[in-house]
Computed example of a mutant assay.
Amino acid sequence: MANEFPETLTIAGTDSGGGAGVMADLKTMQEREVFGTAVVVAVTAQNTLGVQDFMAVPQHLIDEQFASLAADFNIRACKTGMLADAEHVHDVVVNLKENNFGPLTVDPVMIAKGGAALLADDAVTTVRDELVPLADVLTPNLPEAERLTGLTIESSDEMVKAALALQDLGAKNIVIKGGHEATPDEASDFVLMADGRSFWLTAPRIDTVRTHGTGDTLSSCITAELAKGQDYETAIRISKDFVTAAIENTIPVGHGHGPLNHWAYGQGGAQ
């Protein structure tokens, strides 16, 4: 029968360089054996050296994309990524409230790997007040967690405090990514579950510039696993392993912050 296969949705911007955004999301979803769909919120001119330009999609076309998907697909899990500005964040929130697309993973994308701003300053408040409370899983990196909470995060204890503050904003399960932390040997993410349980996910820090799209890949892998029926903790743990493999088994693409190797996890034998 139609729509029995796990279907997912990414709501984000494109990356013409193929390493992040909608492109990374769909590659990840395909590798995790779910069918990915997309609502494109913005289009970027982008490569591994940076973001040269971007333009937000007209809101009426975003609405039409949501309506088109809702009319034909049975989406079991969804995620958000780059949402451009306050008006587009609000429009996405309205559409998410009108449509049941399953558990929502929010990747609060604010700054590209090369430093370019991907979210207007006035949109941070809209993300915090309107989008974060809808999140079943919230996956900020350290700078994003600081922007959303107003806290300074320079230690493990401060990561824990920030996760609690993000839960107070309404998000259920929190994954604070520690890749920006200054520790030389390990990259540790702090996970706070909706039921109060918490744990750390630690992997060896890999000396590489090929980490473009890491956050998109993590959040889209979580989305794929949730669509297949995995519980939240299992989905998060699988996604950490998926991203680690994708960074460890690098591919030589581009001259700057290169992309991940999205097929590495399966090639390594891990499932």
Rank of each mutant, 00 (worst) to 15 (best):
E4W: 13
V93A: 01
V51M: 07
G13P: 07
A86Q: 03
V137I: 13
T125Y: 12
T37W: 05
T126C: 11
V43N: 13
N99W: 10
L118K: 05
M110Y: 04
K113I: 13
I75N: 13
L69T: 13
L131D: 03
D136H: 14
A123K: 01
G13Q: 08
V127A: 00
K27P: 06
N47R: 05
A112S: 15
M23R: 09
G50F: 08
L119Y: 08
F54G: 02
A45V: 15
F73M: 14
T125S: 15
K27C: 07
I62V: 14
D91R: 13
D121S: 15
N47T: 06
T10M: 09
V89R: 00
T10Y: 09
I11A: 05
Q46I: 02
F35K: 06
A116E: 15
V41M: 08
Q46K: 01
V89N: 02
G115H: 03
T8Y: 12
E4C: 12
L118E: 11
M23E: 15
L69P: 11
L9H: 06
D107G: 12
D63Q: 12
E4L: 14
Q46M: 09
A77Q: 10
K79T: 02
L119C: 09
Q46L: 03
A38I: 04
A24S: 09
M82G: 06
C78Q: 12
T10C: 08
K79F: 01
N3C: 11
G114H: 00
G50H: 10
L134E: 05
P108T: 10
D136R: 09
V137Q: 11
F5I: 14
Q59C: 07
G50S: 08
Q46E: 09
T125E: 15
L104T: 09
A71H: 03
A135I: 01
V127F: 02
H90G: 10
N100R: 06
G19A: 12
D63M: 01
A20F: 00
A71V: 00
R32N: 14
G36C: 12
I11Q: 05
D85L: 01
V34K: 04
A56C: 11
L49D: 15
A120N: 07
